[in-house]
């Protein structure tokens, strides 16, 4: 009975502390012009993705019931022109934002879980066990991303294409996170409270889950914004190379179609420019947020802004 009360109060104290830290973070973030611009852009883009059915009729995605004529330049009716099926590019971009964002976030979750796990284990275990995780990270850092992603995409041939793309990006992009987490975990390992926990008989699971992980998580979360932008770029590139899902329009598959259907020799610049610009804006916005977060969490960087 008593132990549970103690537990609850200790938990609530921890939560109160986290809430306070978050409030402090937000106070600083609000003052960061770059970070705020990025955040506003992201909120707008997320709103477009969520409100896609209101902004553009879904029939615009259909190849057979396309509203326009093939390869129409931008006009009053089709602001961004049409593709070779007569589908409005703007409709494709609006609906494609859903796929690009979903793939970006889902791949980031996988990448974060693997990266945190490997990084914490590499930092926590000493000797050969830590060495194995460390070597694994080194190895994934060295292997060039795109050839590995292409090879893995062949392996997940049987899965639905969208899922395959998510998994491929997830397992190819975790090494940077693991490296970062390991460095942070090593500093936590050197703290006296971990020694105290060990002296009191804490097992590996308790040490990692109660001491190492909570100290590593803020860094991991701050790192997500950068990982999302990398994942979105990766999705676009993989889809451009024809490894994406042809049934769901994403920015990358629209660009793949444009390239495969010779939009360039047809002079259909609108078909290439607008989807690409969307990618650049989203990636840039995520990078802005990521840099602002980094500046706040790493005081050494603050002076450099």
């Amino acid at each position: 009975m008593t132990t549970t009360t103690v537990d609850v109060t200790r938990g609530s104290v921890a939560w109160a502390r986290r809430r306070a830290a978050l409030a402090g973070f937000w106070r600083q973030y609000r003052r960061d012009r770059e970070g705020l611009t990025g955040l506003i852009l992201l909120v707008l883009i997320a709103a477009v993705a969520v409100a896609a059915p209101l902004l553009a009729a879904e029939t615009g995605l259909s190849v057979t019931h396309a509203p326009g004529r093939p390869i129409e330049p931008p006009s009053g009716t089709f602001w961004m022109g049409t593709d070779f099926n007569g589908r409005p590019i703007m409709t494709l971009i609006i609906w494609g934002s859903r796929i690009s964002l979903i793939v970006g976030f889902a791949a980031t979750v996988i990448s974060m879980v693997i990266g945190t796990l490997v990084g914490v284990l590499a930092g926590h275990f000493t000797g050969w066990r830590g060495g194995v995780f460390n070597k694994l990270t080194d190895w994934f850092l060295v292997i060039p991303f795109l050839p590995l992603a292409i090879a893995l995409a062949q392996l997940f041939h049987g899965l639905p294409k969208l899922l395959a793309v998510i998994i491929v990006i997830g397992i190819t992009s975790w090494s940077g996170t693991a490296r970062l987490v390991r460095a942070q975990a090593l500093t936590v390992e050197a703290r006296p409270y971990l020694e105290r926990a060990k002296a009191l008989g804490a097992g590996h699971w308790h040490q990692v889950s109660h001491h190492v992980l909570p100290n590593v998580m803020p860094l991991v979360l701050a790192n997500t914004t950068l990982t999302v932008s990398i994942s979105i770029l990766a999705e676009t590139t993989l889809s451009f190379l024809g490894l994406g899902d042809p049934l769901h329009a994403s920015w990358g598959t629209v660009l793949h179609d444009a390239y495969a259907q010779a939009a360039i020799s047809n002079g259909a610049w609108w078909w290439v420019i607008f989807p690409g610009l969307s990618v650049v804006v989203v990636v840039r916005a995520f990078n802005m947020c990521g840099r602002a977060t980094e500046r706040i969490l790493d005081p050494r960087l603050r002076e450099r802004a």
């Binding site: 770029l233 676009t236 660009l255 290439v272 690409g276 990618v279 650049v280 990078n287």
Partner: peptide
């Protein structure tokens, strides 16, 4: 930073 957000192949197409 803006150029860093650009896929190089898209720039190539442009």
């Amino acid at each position: 930073l803006t150029w860093y957000s650009v896929p190089e192949w898209w720039l190539g197409l442009i």
